[in-house]
């Protein structure tokens, strides 16, 4: 079905961005700036051992600096800027990726709003260039690098010994993901990867029962990519503090609801009644 076709709206920005970026490059003669910046970020990370959130803040501040340099016509969509900034500088990857195939037909067409690869996840190929440093597909304790990554996904949730970084990350093309059938999957298509196991969630996501739509309820459908909400390495949503409870209205004192005392669960009630 033609409805299976996905349009990547980020591509437009990728092209425009890269062009402008190179343009800026040729003037500022700071061809190392990407690498430097990336290193800084890495240092920050190791120093503070910060979690994802704080790093995102770092990223945002980087972002703002960039914005100051150039007034972008799409300034209001700053999310995309930073994403494209760290993106592979070739946009030719697209033709290499066939239209994905899933077993479900009839879901409404959609666009993806993905975070793509943010600054903390710099290009794998920067280090894993396939020559000096090859990713090792051996299950082991990570000691030197990537120690900041919470690997609950391969430890707690599926048990150790089952799979490894290289189950999802392509060793031959480090900037891409890889499916179980060794097919290359772009980071913006991560739902294809996740859906290999989480097929029900994938189906729900495609049809709109899982995940989140953004912008509008009718017209062009834009949905968030899996990785917008789930960290791929530790997908369960973290507990967070709730917003404050409803306050009593002005002029009134709230006596917090007190529940009937005693056991509340059916089995507890049963046990309680036996005891008394």
């Amino acid at each position: 079905m033609s409805t299976n076709k996905i349009t990547f709206y980020s591509v437009r920005y990728a092209v425009a961005f890269c062009a402008i970026f190179f343009f800026a490059f040729s003037f500022s003669n700071s061809s190392l700036s990407i690498g430097q910046e990336v290193e800084e970020v890495v240092e920050n990370k190791t120093e503070t051992d910060a979690e994802e959130e704080s790093e995102e803040e770092d990223e945002e501040s980087d972002d703002e600096e960039e914005e100051d340099d150039e007034a972008m016509p799409w300034d209001d969509e700053d999310d995309e800027e930073i994403k494209v900034f760290k993106f592979p500088q070739s946009t030719e990857f697209l033709p290499n990726f066939p239209i994905f195939k899933v077993k479900y037909a009839g879901f409404p067409e959609f666009k993806i709003k993905g975070r793509l690869r943010s600054s903390e996840y710099f290009l794998c190929s920067e280090c894993h260039d396939g020559v000096e440093l090859k990713p090792r597909p051996i299950i082991r304790e990570l000691r030197k690098e990537h120690t900041n990554i919470n690997l609950d996904h391969i430890k707690q949730e599926h048990g150790t010994e089952k799979f490894w970084c290289t189950t999802c990350h392509d060793t031959s093309r480090p900037d891409y993901l890889v499916g179980l059938k060794k097919q290359s999957i772009h980071f913006d298509q991560s739902f294809l990867l996740c859906g290999q196991c989480h097929s029900q969630n994938q189906k729900d996501w495609l049809f709109g029962a899982h995940g989140k739509r953004t912008g509008n309820w009718n017209g062009e459908r834009t949905i968030l990519l899996c990785t917008e909400c789930h960290s791929p390495h530790s997908p369960a949503l973290e507990p967070a503090s709730p917003n404050p409870p409803p306050p009593p209205r002005q002029g009134q004192i709230l006596v917090k609801s007190v529940h009937p005392e005693g056991p509340r669960k059916t089995w507890d009630k049963f046990i309680y009644s036996k005891q008394h």
Binding site: P108, F207, A209, G211, K212, R213, W217, N218, R221, L237
Partner: peptide, 24 residues
């Protein structure tokens, strides 16, 4: 819906058979 951080909410036109809400 926009504020929901977990994507628990689905909104739409229930007269539209192709809408997400109808799927749900």
């Amino acid at each position: 819906l926009e504020a929901c951080p977990t994507g628990a909410r689905v909104f739409g036109n229930i007269l539209d058979p192709k809408s997400e809400i109808r799927y749900v």
